[in-house]
């Protein structure tokens, strides 16, 4: 049913009545040569929502994240965050607006301690240009970093080199780095990739916990994770929105079943 609606109408339907969407894209498109990796994407996510973005490999999920976070500059369309246009801004400016992301392939500072990984992220909001004071003198930053480590369950590993953490711990550190920048919108790119079943459960619980204060976009291949977490799901296919709806709606959508869920 949802598949019959135009994507513009879907975007409007995604936002609960009265709540302005925290993030909105209008006709977003990006081309790599002759390939349209994203094409006319009208997307909106409401404040406080957990939204999953799913789709087959190459559907444009990571490209979509890269456009939102400024790594790629869209070829067409606009991105609005809190009604503020952020299309084509640099990643550091977008981070300062309040969008953070984690990466599909673990992207941390391997030769720094776990604490330093989140401390440097927390420091990006305050004191970053302080030149002659020892970095440990800024207690506010260290306390913030320690609080984030406690949230992602890595407090006991604070002094460990990030390179020495297990894969699952590094994935959670990845989320911690993003959280330490105090975002309003957190984009998680396959946060449970390569995790054991136990670690996946812990990460689901973690995402639920942090979702109380933030809006979350999550790209994920593990359908149990997606169905258990998301309030709503957007299905991308060939760079366009194929369907959007609640987990139950998506699971019974014949077109989604055809192109994705059955494969």
């Amino acid at each position: 049913m949802a598949a019959d609606l135009s994507s513009a109408a879907l975007a409007a339907a995604a936002a609960p009545v009265g709540a302005a969407p925290v993030l909105r894209t209008e006709d977003l498109g990006i081309r790599f040569g002759g390939l349209a990796a994203l094409n006319g994407v009208n997307f909106a996510v409401a404040r406080g929502e957990i939204r999953a973005v799913i789709g087959p490999n190459g559907a444009g999920k990571s490209t979509f994240f890269n456009c939102l976070t400024g790594v790629l500059r869209p070829s067409s369309g606009r991105i609005l965050f809190n009604d503020d246009e952020i299309t084509g801004l640099s990643p550091n400016r977008i981070s300062r607006k309040g969008i953070a992301r984690s990466y599909q392939i673990t992207n941390i500072l391997p030769n720094a301690t776990t604490l330093e990984n989140v401390r440097i992220a927390a420091q990006s909001r305050r004191h970053g240009w302080s030149l002659f004071t020892h970095h440990r003198a800024f207690r506010d930053i260290i306390e913030k970093a320690e609080a984030v480590l406690a949230t992602v369950g890595l407090a006991a590993k604070a002094d460990e080199l990030a390179a020495n953490l297990s894969h699952g711990e590094q994935r959670n550190l990845e989320i911690g780095i993003a959280l330490a920048t105090e975002p309003q919108l957190l984009c998680l790119d396959e946060p449970t990739a390569g995790m054991s079943a136990g670690e996946t459960d812990d990460t689901i619980a973690l995402v639920r916990r942090i979702a109380r204060d933030l809006t979350i976009l999550i790209v994920e291949h593990d359908m149990t994770v997606v169905m258990g977490l998301a309030h709503r799901i957007t299905v991308l296919h060939y760079g366009a929105i194929l369907a959007e709806g609640t987990p139950a709606e998506i699971q019974s959508n014949p077109r989604v079943l055809e192109v994705y869920l059955k494969t």
Partner: peptide
């Protein structure tokens, strides 16, 4: 200093430093 720690973060992972 905080500035010096940012330089080391750039050395370790420039793209990530920009992203935060």
């Amino acid at each position: 200093s905080p500035f010096g720690m940012v330089l080391q973060s750039i050395r370790e992972n420039e793209a990530r430093t920009r992203a935060i």
